[in-house]
Design a protein around this nucleic acid. Structure first.
Lengths: 145, 145
DNA sequence: GCAGATGTTTGACTTCATCAAGTAACTCGA
DNA sequence: TCGAGTTACTTGATGAAGTCAAACATCTGC
């Protein structure tokens, strides 16, 4: 019955599909994080920590109040997944850095997000490129006030 | 530097793009809900209430504990956006129904989710159909244990 | 009719989020 | 250089949302 094939979808259908995929992706991430005893917020923070990031920077990335970050980093630090380091240029600033344990944990979380990986494998090169290009056109519209 | 044009993206790039779009979409939804004094969870519940839904059904839809739903519905009910009705077939069950006010509010929230709509308008029919088909192939892989 | 499963709520607890206020440190102009 | 104003972070109060365990009423099947 369902031919998702060549029919022209309505805008609503597309939106719903995007929402469904977004939700599924998020749940997968949360589940992978939970397997390592992390909340999704904590995993999200760890995922940002390629290098040192000041508290304020994290708040900006997470789009939340700075005082919120204090608590999140407190809990990560208590588990030694993260460390606060003083900034040499500005003594007000504390830079958050992932510890080895922290890097390892987030690496595993990423590794376990495989359901979507599997689905992506069914796309050939042309399809991947097409999808990427079309999705890319959806993204820019979202930088907003 | 970035030509998202016709290059074959890596799986990682595609995943990141999907994640970025998912995040943006979610924030847009939360912002639209907030304009009507709703949390995103509350809006999500309202969005499910096409007809009467038992508490347990909501918990299943939201993938959360049933006891959590009690509080969420309490708050929605306090604002008269939702009503609990006894189920005639099973006296244990309470069905949640949106009030007129509730339906109106969620209609407006949907109306305000327009940023993505705008982006979708830039796709022609062929592109929409292609995107829909490709995304459709990503979805099924997510029904899992 | 009784044992066991199911639907809902309550209570205790954690995390995430907000805001307001406080402290320390930086910046820049007079 | 000094002081006003801004910025970075923390603390405390509060509320929403999530968990689990336990209680209670009701259904189901034997």
């Amino acid at each position: 019955m369902s031919d998702t094939a060549t029919q022209t979808p309505t805008k609503l259908q597309l939106l719903e599909l995007l929402a469904a995929i977004g939700t599924a992706q998020w749940r997968e991430f949360a589940a992978a994080a939970a397997q390592h005893g992390l909340t999704s917020t904590q995993a999200r923070v760890l995922a940002q920590l390629d290098g040192p990031v000041p508290m304020r920077g994290l708040a900006t990335l997470l789009v939340c109040d700075a005082s919120n970050v204090t608590g999140i980093v407190d809990r990560l630090e208590a588990r030694e997944l993260v460390r606060r380091e003083p900034d040499r240029a500005d003594r007000r600033v504390k830079n958050v850095v992932a510890t080895d344990a922290g890097r390892e944990v987030i690496r595993r979380v990423r590794e376990e997000m495989q359901a979507m990986h599997g689905a992506l494998d069914t796309l050939d090169e042309t399809e991947s490129a097409t999808l990427y290009a079309l999705l890319g056109r959806l993204r820019p519209s979202m930088e907003k006030a």
